[in-house]
């Protein structure tokens, strides 16, 4: 369906970019905007400190590693994740902003999963924290949907030919966590010992979990 341009609502954003009124240097730009919003009574600097502390110290990839280790050890938890990930994660206290609708995708010898957001940088914050720089980079967003194996090589990951790659482009508010394969030789390991093996990258799909030799 094509609309008639004369009668369509038009996007006005292209004509006016007020951000250029702020200082160009990014650190000064942020400082200026914080000062203006604080003077206007719209921002409490103490609230900013709490937000920063949350993402620097409380929410990060160890949450996701906990989920992975628990799923490896407890079949009933894995079943709960498959049936309704949001409910299972809520019980562990992992929910909230940028993790409202979670799906866990499982790696197998036949299928390796990789997550990206080509249009912005959507990422499961409650489980993995703030996305790494490369996840937000143009190179990752542009390349991983077209050449996932070349991207994996940048992470020193090489998959066997029998393993297909499935790339999840997070275009909606659904967030994906990769459940990596449990390495051989870890039978009977404690949850903490397994957690220590699980890297952030393995839960995005740019890493695999290995036992250090």
């Amino acid at each position: 369906m094509q609309g008639n341009l004369w009668f369509m609502p038009h996007d006005t954003h292209d004509h006016d970019h007020p951000h250029a009124l702020l200082p160009p240097q990014p650190a000064l730009r942020v400082k200026a905007l914080e000062t203006i919003l604080t003077q206007k009574g719209l921002v409490d600097p103490a609230a900013l400190d709490v937000i920063i502390d949350t993402y620097e110290n409380k929410i990060g990839p160890r949450n996701g590693a906990h989920v992975v280790a628990k799923a490896w050890r407890e079949p009933e938890f894995l079943d709960a994740l498959r049936t309704d990930a949001d409910a299972a994660l809520l019980e562990l206290g992992y929910y909230g902003r940028q993790g409202e609708h979670m799906v866990v995708v499982e790696n197998t010898p036949q299928m390796h999963n990789l997550v990206v957001c080509t249009l912005c940088s959507c990422y499961p914050w409650p489980l993995l924290g703030i996305p790494p720089g490369w996840y937000k980079s143009d190179a990752y967003r542009a390349r991983v949907v077209r050449e996932p194996r070349a991207v994996l090589a940048d992470f020193d990951v090489r998959l066997p030919d029998e393993t297909a790659v499935r790339v999840w482009d997070s275009t909606a508010e659904v967030r994906y966590l990769v459940l990596p394969m449990r390495p051989a030789g870890t039978e009977g390991w404690s949850e903490q010992a397994l957690m220590d093996l699980v890297s952030r990258d393995s839960m995005i799909g740019t890493g695999v979990v290995q036992v250090p030799v």
Partner: peptide, 19 residues
Amino acid sequence: DMGGRFGDGPIVPESEDVI
């Protein structure tokens, strides 16, 4: 809207400690 674009070069992994 850059998915599939050519020419962006290598991806640089980074430590989990860098937030």
